[in-house]
Design a protein around this nucleic acid. Structure first.
Length: 860
RNA sequence: GCGGAUAUGGUGGAAUGGUAGACACAACAGACUUAAAAUCUGUUGAGGCUUGUCCUCGUGCGGGUUCGAGUCCCGCUAUCCGCACCA
């Protein structure tokens, strides 16, 4: 206590080992306290934690510690999303085995995370690449197979013809393989899919019950599921005994049809390409875009006229309206095979994409929807796609019908003549879980020539990954393994082949939150009773980038687990919070090369120079920290030089947690100074003083402020408004520092306020607060397990309030007035303010609006 | 392209439709010091003059609703996130 400077290194180390020794954060499954499950999205073990992790885990840890102090039995676990591509890339590049690479990365990251002082029950740690973990999901997969939820389906993949390997979307750069540089091809593979679409309605409907989720995420999931009602339409192909089936949400625009278009992967296109080399070439061109929807839809719209014609379902009427009932059929690069039927009919006047395409290829544009008030639109470069205020025109039997009635009217007519039928379509597609990769969970089935696909019997689980594999960047290492895939059929006993695909890593992350409930249970994924007690997760914290895929897959998986009898809950995450990214300024030297922050010396005027030679540096805007832009700050350095408390304080201060956060040196310096200031205030904290009969005015003010701060901070933390909570705590800190301690009232108030402050800061800066708790307040037990302070309501309201006085809604003065005081007298007082009088002048007062205890507004 | 979000001083941001700028950073001035660091005190949205308990303007841009709009509504612009094999 004699040290002037706070030594965070010894203090942080001391309490971290103390917490570990005491098993302070171990979750007692038998506790009768109410449970609280706090969870952050588990990390991929890349080898080092980054600032995004620091921000994420700081938030989750504050929630966990806050709830623990509020008396909850908190479950706060951590683990590793340990399968995935980077380990395999490292194996190809550096020759290190994925298992070894992953294990070492986990050890390094665990060490860093422990230095953050997170209140985690490390006894529950899981790594998804352990057979003890993945064997359970093999069993769940067999359940899915039994229930018909897992099935084989042809899917398109990016194929690198040089590496003979399937590429991930991120491995396709400008239509070429990132290592080989060869133009990618699309290949159709028979792969495992899960019927998430069976659950589409439930996934959609239950969003309404997820009150603890941000509206934006629920909206994104709703749009991702994309339930839309519309119709299938049938267009006979002229001169052939075939019919083109299309899906549309706007059958009411059928009389505006201009052409039909099919995807480059549509069976008709593939068939025609066999005898048409130009079309084959065009399809190749489309394939070079890869399989990602974004690249397909942002590419310049291109088409290829197949020469085929399709017949309009209402050929007679269409002819009478001046249309040519034989519509050209194009292959178009923007039509997705995965959605609907892979074929569309195009109405350029009322769909922007169709219009762009029609203009390019000189196809007709027929207006068939008018605005109900403004009449027929003039379509030049902008399609009129409004459905709220549209009315059908130039459309035979639909004329005059508002769009919303025209749609069902058209469907009814189509059904009558057998040229279409109503349907509900989901944008959501079944979840393709097959990956042609080594570093993943083996899919537990056997392909037998005689018996077909045979599940591996439960007694033979787990199907283990072989360790002796070769990584040369060519093909799937599992497929190429000399012996591994050769086995015998569990049914007939004849030689058979193992499935060499592994699971998508989203499979592991879809149920890890349940595994934490029973992390070491050998014969089952988790104990049903314990899972039912601790699930759903009360507060889940992670990045917004997972809004659709991970969060939807986890919801789906939970429902499947429920239906297979593993647990009773149907939704995994009761509360969800999505934090923003961590950003930093970017720097480039005169030659345009990126520079690390450490290579740059910033001047007070905002300009910057290179440390090495003083040459000028261009300061770019703040962007998401990334390796490619060199704008990284290593948490390791920060923890070493400033300590965990300062780092945690900084990432939670100033910026709302859901927004992007800008890392600055000034900011971390400021947080570090605050920890030191707290320490100095601790040094001057008076010894325990009996509460005097009456408090001085100043002491009373501080006590009141303390209670108000407790109330505000409690509310802010419940809402995860860490930045606002910390601002309030700063205010209280300033008030404590201003408190004179030359009388007993002052001594009492100081100590009371400072003790409350210490408790409230404990979740954010746990080490410093623990030290103060023991050294200044002489406590024997941990502050981590102490009680959260309670605000006394009697101190929350003041006798006098400040009333704003406005004229015409503009502030002209303020008044101190008794709380809930007489309104008539208040009005008179307000009128007496000179500035108010001056504003009113000789204008008559029309009315006076009084908002109780807040303001008076005089309208003249 | 489609879907989702964001925009307030020099900077990060605060603000149940009711006193815009809390809290912090930076900057400037002062105290302490041989000096620096640290610390403490003060000033700090812009403009104006009559320097006041003053006036005008001000929350990305253009409109609207209201006694009153950063907040609600309509239309833009810019930036960010996701788009199904990165996790």
């Amino acid at each position: 206590m004699s040290e002037e400077r706070y030594n965070f290194r010894t203090v942080e180390e001391k309490w971290q080992s103390e917490w570990e020794k005491e098993k302070a954060f171990k979750t007692d499954e038998k506790s009768d306290k109410p449970k609280y499950y706090a969870l952050e999205m588990f990390p991929y073990p890349s080898g080092k934690i980054h600032m995004g992790h620091v921000r994420n885990y700081a938030m989750g840890d504050v929630v966990a510690r806050f709830k623990r102090m509020q008396g909850f039995n908190v479950l706060h676990p951590m683990g590793w999303d340990a399968f995935g591509l980077p380990a395999e890339n490292a194996a190809i590049k550096h020759g290190v085995h994925p298992a070894k690479w992953t294990k070492e990365n986990i050890a390094a990251m665990r060490k860093q995370m422990k230095k953050m002082g997170l209140s985690i029950d490390w006894d529950r740690e899981v790594a998804t690449c352990d057979a003890d973990y993945y064997k359970h999901e093999q069993r769940v997969f067999l359940d899915m197979l039994k229930r018909g939820l897992a099935y084989r389906k042809d899917s398109w993949v990016n194929w690198d013809p040089v590496e003979q390997t399937v590429l991930a979307n991120e491995q396709v750069v400008d239509g070429k393989g990132w290592r080989s540089g060869a133009p990618v091809e699309k290949r159709k593979l028979s792969q495992w899919s899960l019927k998430i679409t069976d659950y589409a309605d439930e996934l959609l409907n239950e969003l309404d019950n997820l009150d603890g989720w941000p509206e934006k995420v629920k909206l994104m999931q709703k749009n991702w599921i994309g339930k839309s009602t519309g119709a299938y339409l049938y267009f006979p192909i002229v001169g052939k005994n075939e019919t083109l089936e299309v899906f549309t949400t706007r059958p009411d625009t059928l009389f505006g049809a201009s052409f039909c278009a099919i995807s480059a992967q549509h069976p008709i296109a593939l068939e025609l390409a066999k005898t048409n080399p130009d079309l084959a070439k065009f399809i190749k061109e489309c394939e070079a875009l890869g399989t990602s929807a974004a690249s397909v839809e942002t590419a310049e719209k291109k088409g290829f006229d197949t020469g085929l014609k399709v017949e309009h379902p209402f050929a007679e009427e269409f002819k009478k309206l001046g249309g040519n009932p034989e519509l050209p059929l194009y292959v178009a690069n923007f039509v997705l095979m995965e959605y609907g039927t892979g074929a569309i009919f195009a109405c350029p006047a009322h769909d922007q994409r169709d219009l762009d395409f029609a203009r390019k290829y000189g196809l007709p544009v027929r207006v068939v929807v008018a605005h109900k008030d403004e009449g027929e639109p003039v379509v030049t470069d902008t399609a009129f796609a409004d459905i709220e205020d549209g009315v059908a025109v130039n459309s035979a039997f639909l004329n005059g019908l508002p769009t919303k009635q025209a749609i069902p009217a058209m469907i009814k007519k189509l059904e009558e003549i057998g040229r279409g039928k109503a349907t509900t379509q989901f944008r959501l597609r079944d979840w393709g879980v097959s990956r042609q990769r080594y570093w993943g969970c083996p899919i537990p089935v056997v392909h037998c020539e005689h018996c077909g696909i045979v599940p591996v019997p439960e007694k033979d689980l787990p199907v283990l990954l072989p360790e002796d594999v070769v990584f040369d960047g060519n093909g799937n290492p599992l497929e190429k393994h000399p012996t591994w895939k050769h086995t015998v059929c569990p049914v007939c006993g004849k030689p058979a082949l193992r499935e060499t695909d592994t699971f998508d890593t989203f499979f592991e992350s879809s149920w890890y939150f349940a595994r934490y409930c029973s992390p070491t249970l050998a014969d089952k994924p988790f104990d049903k009773d314990i899972a039912d007690r601790f699930l759903p997760v009360d507060q889940y914290v992670g990045g917004i980038e997972h809004a659709c895929m991970h969060l939807l897959y986890a919801r789906f998986f939970t429902k499947v687990l429920r239906d297979c009898g593993y647990l009773n809950v149907g939704e995994p995450f009761k509360g969800l919070f999505t934090q923003g990214m961590v950003c930093h300024e970017t720097y480039k030297d005169a030659d345009g090369n990126w520079l690390f922050p450490g290579e740059v010396d910033k001047k007070p005027d905002g300009t910057a120079v290179k440390v090495s030679d003083g040459s000028p540096v261009t300061v770019g805007r703040s962007e998401k920290m990334s390796k490619s832009k060199y704008n990284l700050i290593d948490p390791e350095d920060i923890l070493k030089n400033y300590g965990a408390d300062a780092a945690r304080l900084f990432v939670l201060s100033d910026t709302p947690p859901d927004r992007d956060f800008e890392w600055t040196t000034a900011g971390i310096d400021g947080a570090w100074r605050y920890v030191n200031r707290l320490w100095r205030l601790a040094q001057t904290c008076p010894a325990e003083t009996k509460k005097p009969e009456t408090l001085t005015k100043e002491a009373d003010k501080l006590v009141r402020l303390t209670h108000k701060t407790i109330a505000a901070v409690t509310e802010n933390l419940e809402k995860l408004q860490f930045n606002v909570a910390l601002a309030k705590l700063r205010e209280l800190t300033n008030a404590v520092a201003d408190m004179k301690t030359d009388d007993d009232a002052g001594k009492y108030a100081y100590r009371f306020a400072f003790e409350s402050l210490t408790r409230m800061l404990a979740p954010v800066a746990p080490h410093a607060c623990e030290e103060i708790w023991h050294e200044v307040f002489g406590q024997k037990d941990l502050i981590a397990l102490a009680a959260w302070p309670a605000a006394d309501k009697a101190f929350l309201v003041d006798d006098a309030v400040t009333i704003a006085v406005q004229v015409q809604g503009k502030l002209r003065g303020t008044l101190e007035y008794a709380k809930d005081g007489d309104e008539e007298a208040l009005k008179q007082l307000a009128m007496q303010i000179p500035a108010v009088k001056a504003q009113i002048g000789d204008k008559p007062v029309r009315k006076i609006i009084v908002v109780k205890n807040r303001l008076v507004n005089i309208v003249v």
